[in-house]
Amino acid sequence: MIATPRPSLPTAPPQPVAPDRRRGRGTVSNASGRFEPYVRTEEDDGWDVLDSLEPFRTEVTLEAARTAITRNQSPDIPFDRSVNPYRGCEHGCVYCFARPTHAYLGLSPGLDFESRLTVKPNIAELLRRELSAPGYKPRTMALGTNTDPYQPLEKTHRLTRRILEVLEEARHPVGIVTKSALVLRDLDILSRMAEQGLAKVAISLTTLDPTLARQMEPRAPTPARRLETIARLAQAGVPVTALTAPIIPSLNEHEIDRLLESAKAAGASEAGYVLLRLPHEIKDLFQEWLLENHPAKMRRILSLIRDTRGGKLYDSGWDVRQKGEGVVAWTIGRRFEMASARLGLDRRHLRLRTDLFVAPPRKGRGEPADQLSLF
């Protein structure tokens, strides 16, 4: 590994990591994040050292978080607060808009994002404290806004379940976005909360093609498993949204009708979509992925993406970043709207209740604990 000062001028994209070292991963390279003063590259010194490097294995770091609730004021996002128990995501979705956040840790948004993960073991205790703060006013808490709360790490760390236990105790509304069937493990909590109008789940359904899903989302459940998850959630009385995201022109765009029909048949009651977003490093990562997996379509796909972003690969403007603009974006939007209307997936926009909220009792630790009730 050689570290060189980051050049001031654009350079050729980084060399792909050998397939054997990244087997089962989503991205092709592991380029340095945008904040790093040096660019790290692997160079063969003539002794075949690169052939003997270890494959990328999942590494977990524990973080003592300082806060639990992340707030935003973005006008194009339907929630103003969220909780994220993990940084990075082992699902490895190549298009994940959260990848650039790994650059803040001094890590690569590429292979590091899906193999060097952070766990916040104190997140539930912090959440309890913040919900019990004087003057706290409840609104829907979002889970799954940055990385999937039910990625494989959750099987052992169970932080998402602990968060749900706190929210259920406080009767606080929660909305979850996930690709994982592991959400069914917490069906006991979710069904009880849903019965009170306090919970809903969105299942991300990107494609029905298992080969394409394996390429784009290598460690996420199969499309069939996600449809089964929608069915079981709906049968348990948990409202389910089918989130067809991201829609990628000329790659999965043609599946919009089939995706919505399958989700409706499984029990989904609402639907939503987001056009592919390519902020920061994702632009390069996605182009590398296209070159390796869909080289014949690469120019066509990138051309259509630019048509939806005013000639660029990405536009971060409010509303534009989610849906795009121009003829291509308009066509995708109308196709989705017509299919949703035909299937009745546009008729219900569930608002969760906030009037049942009860602040959880504080447990001390440097602050006065609430007096326990005698009755």
Rank of each mutant, 00 (worst) to 15 (best):
K179R: 15
S180P: 08
S180A: 12
A181L: 06
A181Q: 14
R185H: 11
R185C: 06
L187H: 10
L187K: 04
I189C: 06
I189T: 14
I189S: 06
L190N: 04
R192S: 08
R192D: 05
R192C: 08
R192A: 08
M193Q: 04
A194W: 01
A194D: 08
A194P: 05
E195P: 01
E195L: 00
Q196N: 05
L198H: 03
A202W: 07
A202E: 12
A202N: 10
T207N: 07
P210G: 12
P210N: 12
T211P: 05
M216Q: 12
P218T: 12
R219S: 15
T222W: 13
R225K: 15
R226C: 09
L227I: 07
L227P: 10
I230V: 15
L233A: 01
Q235A: 15
P239C: 11
L243D: 06
T244H: 11
N252R: 03
N252F: 01
H254I: 03
H254S: 15
S262N: 00
A265F: 00
E270H: 01
A271Y: 04
G272S: 14
Y273H: 14
V274Y: 04
L275I: 13
L278I: 09
P279M: 09
P279V: 05
H280D: 10
H280W: 11
E281Q: 13
E281M: 09
L285V: 08
L285Y: 09
